[in-house]
Simulated scan of single mutants.
Amino acid sequence: MRFHIMTLFPEIFNSYFGESIMKRAIEKGIIEVFVYNIRDFSANKHKKVDDYPFGGGAGMLMTPQPIYDTYKHIVDTHNIENPRVIYLTPKGKTLKQGIVKGFSKEEDIILLCGHYEGIDQRIIDLIVTDEISIGDYVLTGGELPALILVDAIARLIPGVLNQNESFEDESFENDLLEYPHYTRPREFMGLNVPDVLLSGNHQKIEAWRKEQAIEITKKRRKDLYKKYCKK
């Protein structure tokens, strides 16, 4: 799978993709990550990428030309037809695990990181297929949401997680939050690992984990619990 990230701040992505699971996935060739500096595609002699909004208002908007030319470079260079272009914005659909699963089936995904007060609406009309929000709050740019989205998608691609890093029992699978985890030592500051986890009885362990997942979901996410009960 190939991720193409359009941003004004490409350096933000270097350290993240050079570490841990993402680094291993890239080295194995399971995923590819291309980061494009929108400013490089500006036709302005000063490489300007923003301007004042028509009609007045606070802040600046990213202008359409550099973004569109970055997009054209991506699709032409990599021969991408009908690309999935995701704009990270508070106005978008809230990211859920089901949406992530859908994205994970794509061969190429283009992510557009906005900045300032946002981007010219004509770019959204022309190239954006999905507007995605990571929550009901506002950040200074789309770079952090883009990293979150790439991470969430990539870990669902076969081979990215090794055999000890399965996502099948994680939160939001089957509409349940994840059960508690314990490791050594058996006792820490007066708190003990539940006996069932030390029993060696895998059937009882699985039953305990499911019970815990149900109880945690019921207490913390009633919306998910209701969906689980309807199954």
Rank of each mutant, 00 (worst) to 15 (best):
P185L: 03
M22R: 04
Y137T: 12
Y71R: 00
A207T: 08
P64S: 06
G141R: 01
A43R: 15
L176S: 12
Q212Y: 03
I127Q: 02
P66V: 01
E143L: 03
L191M: 13
H46N: 13
I134V: 15
G59K: 12
Q212A: 13
N174S: 15
E178N: 15
I132Y: 14
I157Q: 13
I123F: 15
L8W: 02
H115W: 03
D223A: 04
G57F: 09
R24C: 03
R155E: 02
D175M: 10
D108F: 13
L161N: 08
E106W: 10
I30N: 05
F188N: 07
S20I: 08
Y228T: 08
Y68Q: 01
K72C: 06
P90A: 07
H46S: 08
L176K: 08
F103S: 07
P64D: 05
I99D: 01
H78T: 05
V128N: 00
M1Q: 08
N82M: 13
I148C: 11
K45G: 03
R155F: 07
F13N: 00
I74L: 02
P180E: 14
E19F: 15
R122D: 14
N201I: 01
K231H: 06
S20Q: 07
R184H: 11
E206W: 01
A58W: 06
I119A: 01
L126N: 15
Y71H: 07
E81Q: 12
I67H: 00
E106F: 15
P83Q: 09
T77A: 14
L224P: 04
F17M: 01
L224K: 02
S133K: 05
I74Q: 00
I31D: 05
T94V: 11
G59F: 14
I132Q: 11
R122F: 14
K231N: 10
Q65A: 01
D40L: 12
P64C: 04
G55K: 04
L147V: 12
I205K: 01
Q97W: 07
P64H: 05
Y87A: 00
K93S: 14
G135Y: 11
D151L: 12
G102K: 13
K28W: 08
